[in-house]
Design a protein around this nucleic acid. Structure first.
Lengths: 335, 335
DNA sequence: GTTCACTATTGAATCGATTCATACAAGGGA
DNA sequence: TCCCTTGTATGAATCGATTCAATAGTGAAC
């Protein structure tokens, strides 16, 4: 097809070895020949064939990242952070989307293996740890993202959801809440269970009862639904503060409250989780527990490169970020 | 490193050619040998080396997609649609992000060339059409996404922004607006210019004056800023309906109006553009002009595969979708 | 029994960049 | 002058899957 190193070599009247040197170790080549080769490359429109390079070297200069859901801004932000690091290391970055489907997850892992990626960043869906260990032993390491590695065999970067839940409820109680509530589910999701556990602990420490509204998922509609339920409660039994397990839910609650004339934060204070962009942008800006999303991706990628570049000296680490409360209108109270 | 076809062939006691046949044309191999080879593959944990395959065949089974901004839900949705089609064709899908930076765009095109992707889906930032034509002539076709191909040399899939702008203003006027306004900018962005042109045409057709508030970008903060300006106007000069060039701006306007006690839609009706998820989810659900995002990606990918599979018979097409108005609370009026 | 048609299998050649042992040249020191 | 070092350049061998011309094997037809 296109021109190859041979063609370049012929035109520049040097050997293929010299062309390769110009491409990879230009300082080892006489300026004069270097110029000749570069001129030939430009003239022919030569583009290095990455397949040939990686066939010879045994691995492609690329990272694979497999996320649960590209439509979720959390993951795109994490990916952005990781991509920057990959670029620093002159690696290409393949972003794939398992859509929370274990079959797709397997298919993409197959693909990554065939492509001989140098390493993988993954938010696991199915039961893939064994497979990841096998791949690791074949020289393809991985780092778990947004999930604490149960095993000692991986690095992971995650967030302390218990601390986040605790901070939310402490903040609401400090603002005067006497009947706080938690909204979220299902509790089979580790994140939800942890956030709930933190909330419960904070309430208990303050000697306050925590109402719980369990939801089947974390979507907007569920939030609106629970908001309607709360709106129907007698004033005396109605929570005066709500911590929602994520911002989508919180926005649903907010929409319902607004529609039903329940004032936020005066009647009900509200805190979400994730601090997505739209938390700032809702008509009443939403307080939320923020996670350092880009930083999560960045640290994960750095850990991965550490393992890639130094497979034996490398020690697995579990990085756990503590999320931070961002206070906005929805929970700001005079008291 | 890992086992190769040779190792598999040795273990299964067949030739490498037969192993290759099992992998690529299993029906041409005797069931007995096929089983032996498959057993050997399983036993050795053989994984096909994609680099070797594509070196031999001259191209990798993959598509590249280069978007303006992965953080924008519009593009992730388009990407999702395209990815599905790529998966159908058993191609892998490399999603890259130019972040509206012409230098990054060039770098990723370099990468795609080196990887010998079979085709490219791109939302161009800089002045890349010439380069894309050159790549096309070297056998790597591309399809322009969200941008009408100026030249006849490409397929493109885009949206009729003029029609969208027209629909927005027609709807507002039909709802009783007498002093409609357009908010958006910069007009150097084709999309913005088109939406504005449509709005202007509709207003003229109805014999109504259109106020214009030009903004330096399409971000939330700008919307809030213009919202504050509008709030400061005397009642008699204040627009009674606003069409914002995208939903981010519209949400900014909405937040400002809410904060300043301007009722939506009673005092000011509001329509955005893009119909992002959060349009439904704001406290007052936002009317918006919706684009078939996944479908855009899907059609673009199909055009690309048509050109890949049939480079000579292929005829370039410009697909233009007409966007649709979705009416919600923010512009619903008794009249 | 010979020829023809057809299928299943083989293995050397191939893709293109990189590597590395080897060769060569130029200069410095003795 | 000879030897050694240092700096460059060379090109055959290599990575692993695929291809394809050649060959072996099978059975049908005459």
């Amino acid at each position: 097809m296109g021109p190859s190193v041979k063609d370049v070599a012929a035109l520049a009247q040097v050997s293929v070895g010299t062309v390769s040197n110009v491409l990879n170790r230009p300082e080892q080549v006489t300026p004069e020949k270097r110029k000749r080769v570069q001129a030939a490359i430009a003239q022919l429109g030569f583009v290095r064939n990455e397949s040939a390079r990686s066939l010879r070297s045994g691995s492609s200069r690329s990272l694979g990242m497999l996320v649960l859901d590209v439509r979720n801004p959390f993951f795109t932000d994490v990916a952005l952070g990781a991509e920057d690091v990959a670029e620093e290391h002159k690696h290409s970055f393949i972003l794939a989307n398992s859509s929370e489907d274990a079959r797709r997850e397997q298919a993409y892992l197959d693909l990554f293996e065939e492509q001989r990626v140098q390493g993988i960043l993954i938010t696991p869906v199915g039961d893939v740890l064994q497979r990841l260990e096998a791949m690791q032993s074949r020289g393809i390491p991985s780092v778990l993202v947004d999930r604490l590695a149960g095993s000692e065999n991986f690095c992971s970067v995650s967030v302390d959801d218990v601390a986040g839940g605790r901070a939310a409820i402490e903040h609401l109680i400090a603002g005067g809440a006497e009947r706080p509530a938690f909204v979220g589910g299902p509790f089979t999701l580790q994140q939800v269970a942890d956030r709930h556990a933190g909330a419960l602990a904070a309430a208990a420490a303050a000697g306050v009862q925590l109402q719980v509204f369990e939801t089947p998922n974390l979507k907007f509609e569920r939030g609106r639904h629970v908001g309607d339920l709360i709106g129907d409660l007698r004033q005396s039994r109605r929570p005066d503060a709500v911590f929602a397990a994520n911002d989508q839910l919180a926005l649903g609650l907010l929409q319902s409250f607004t529609a039903n004339g329940i004032r936020v934060p005066d009647d009900v204070a509200l805190v979400g989780f994730d601090d997505i962009d739209f938390a700032t942008q809702s008509s009443i800006p939403l307080s939320s527990i923020g996670q350092p999303r880009q930083l999560i991706g960045e640290r994960a990628a750095r850990l991965l490169f550490d393992e890639i570049e130094n497979p034996h000296g490398h020690e697995h680490q579990q990085i756990v970020f503590t999320p931070e409360l961002v206070v906005r209108e929805s929970s700001r109270r005079p008291g």
